[in-house]
């Protein structure tokens, strides 16, 4: 069995940890070993939340710089910030809807142009799938389902040996009952978006 290393980055409050949990549960259903590591604590205070998921045959639960096989980002500038985790073969999936860092509002930083970011992400890695996940999440029913949209896109690529059905089952068992239908719709929309993008 090989090893697949996935980094998920997001801004606090975007539901990164829930997305990781859903993937972990789906891996359990797929008999795919997984070790996950997360950094939280400051998560609800607007910082960056990073999860590392190591699938398959490995003992480590964290991922060194340059060693991610896949990078999933819920926000474009965070994808760029996480480029240090990537190598020239890393597949990158990102939402294009910006969440402006507060430092920009107080004049301590300039938010990069979306097109610049897209170009850099595409050129430097093993390929970029990018789309507006917020728009799709709203279409599914709530902006809070951005995380599920991106899971859909990730599963579509087939990089992880996890069938879509298992992720949907995990969504049913792991996410709040009132949101299950929306979350599954969001997952499907993300899946389609990745299909169209590639």
């Amino acid at each position: 069995m090989g090893t697949t290393r996935l980094i998920i980055v997001a801004v606090g409050g975007q539901g990164n940890l829930l997305a990781s949990k859903v993937l972990g549960e789906a891996a359990l259903l797929s008999d795919l070993p997984v070790r996950m590591s997360e950094i939280h604590g400051m998560a609800q205070r607007g910082g960056v939340v990073e999860s590392a998921l190591v699938f398959g045959d490995a003992e480590s639960s964290i991922i060194s710089d340059g060693e991610a096989d896949v990078l999933v980002s819920f926000e474009p500038s965070e994808a760029l910030r996480a480029l240090n985790k990537c190598n020239i073969k890393t597949k990158v999936i990102t939402s294009l809807s910006p969440v402006q860092p507060f430092t920009v509002a107080i004049g301590r930083g300039i938010y990069p142009e979306i097109d610049t970011m897209k170009k850099l992400l595409d050129e430097k890695t093993g390929g970029l799938i990018s789309f507006d996940a917020v728009e799709l999440a709203e279409k599914a029913g709530t902006v809070m389902s951005v995380n599920m949209v991106l899971l859909g896109a990730l599963i579509q690529t087939g990089i992880l040996p996890i069938p879509a059905e298992n992720v949907k089952t995990a969504i049913q068992t792991t996410t709040k009952k009132a949101f299950v239908d929306i979350n599954i719709k969001a997952f499907d929309l993300g899946f389609e978006a990745a299909q169209n993008a590639s």
Binding site: G66, N87, P101, Y111
Partner: peptide, 18 residues
């Protein structure tokens, strides 16, 4: 493994906890 060259990546505004 060959890591990504980050020299021409613009500085990304930080998100310090607030």
């Amino acid at each position: 493994s060959e890591v990504v060259d980050l020299t021409d990546v613009p500085e990304i505004p930080n998100r310090p906890p607030n």
